[in-house]
Design a protein around this nucleic acid. Structure first.
Length: 282
RNA sequence: GGUCGAGUAGCUCAGUCGGCAGAGCACACGCCUGAAAAGCGUGGGGUCACCGGAUCGACGCCGGUCUCGACCA
């Protein structure tokens, strides 16, 4: 008898990788996960500094396993860079923590323009690709150039290159005013579901969150509130605002990728998108 | 009712001696290779509360009106 392929979900989400951060990351529920196998969730504790390469290794292995089972992988989520490392042949450069510390120390003291000029000498292409004021990117590029002995830009074709991929890529898009209203409702729903209690519990268990987990929408603001920096109302308003800005930034990230097919959603994402996706797959 | 203060971008507010209207945030747009729910940049936006006056020229000075706040009665 022929085996019917099943779908398995790979979450492509930089924050759903953290155990215990459930409500604020809108993590799939136990029921969801019982119905369909999920991967990429609950990989590390919130005191763990997580980064792209770690995700890529785990998710790529999951995709391989899914294929070996004869099933189909559905990559779901909004962390654009993480997705690119799975869909595109990206050659991630590695890391040199000691060198990075040295460069970061210099960046704290020297004018960033000087470091950018230094990068331009080592790797003109990489230097031209980033703003001369973007300290974080310049430090990273210098770390790679000095550590690997190769130009940073020699690792892969860069984000502007969009070769054909083995995936159908679909983006769901809402009108901005509707998006704004839904985000506000979503944040208030999360608060009603106990987000503050979740954050309080995590703050007790993990006095020092990782830099990455600490910046998560909803968690950052509520920790700020627990530390007395802002009122609860201010924290909630800030979550709404930052979530809205993030959603727009996501749309901008994917919008420039010509391989993404957009589906405009007006009311019901499942009912409106599923038939279109079915057509695109057939 | 009286005194004082305030009224400038969507919001919070700068604006020196009268000489082209400013900032931060928001918003729009763009960038990004091991922090990416992060980071960086570009841009649009004004009846300077209103009416009048003096001046070559007013957000600013003079007179009046309205609104808000504090204090006095």
């Amino acid at each position: 008898a022929a085996v019917v392929p099943r779908f398995e979900v790979v979450a492509v989400d930089a924050m759903q990788v953290y155990r215990g951060m459930d409500i604020g990351t809108a993590k799939p529920t136990a029921a969801d996960r019982a119905a369909v196998p999920h991967h990429g969730l609950d990989l590390v504790d919130p005191d763990h500094d997580f980064a792209v390469a770690e995700f890529t290794a785990i998710a790529a292995a999951a995709i391989t396993d899914i294929a070996a089972r004869g099933n189909r992988a559905v990559l779901v989520g909004g962390t654009g860079l993480y997705l690119r490392t799975l869909t595109d042949p990206m050659d991630m450069p590695g890391s040199w923590p000691d060198l990075r510390a040295v460069v970061e120390a210099r960046a704290a003291v020297e004018p960033i323009a000087d470091l950018h000029a230094e990068l331009a000498a080592l790797d003109p292409l990489a230097a031209s690709r980033m703003e001369p004021s973007n300290t974080r990117r310049i430090v990273r590029a210098l770390e790679v150039c000095l550590g690997s002995g190769r130009p940073f830009s020699s690792f892969g074709p860069g984000l502007q290159s969009y070769p054909p991929v083995a995936f159908l890529q679909v983006g769901l898009r809402w009108e901005r005013p509707v998006l704004a209203r839904r985000i506000e409702q979503r944040v208030h729903r999360m608060m009603a579901e106990g987000l503050l209690a979740e954050v309080t519990g995590l703050a007790d268990r993990y006095p020092r969150w990782s830099r990455t987990a600490r910046q998560a929408l909803g968690y950052k603001e509520l920790v700020d509130h627990l530390e007395g920096a802002v009122s609860l109302d201010e924290a909630v308003a800030s979550i709404v605002l930052r979530t809205r800005q993030f959603a727009v930034r996501q749309e901008r990230w994917f919008r420039r990728d010509p391989r993404v097919q957009w589906i405009d959603i007006h009311d019901d994402p499942v009912a409106e998108a599923l038939p279109v996706i079915g057509t695109l797959l057939s």
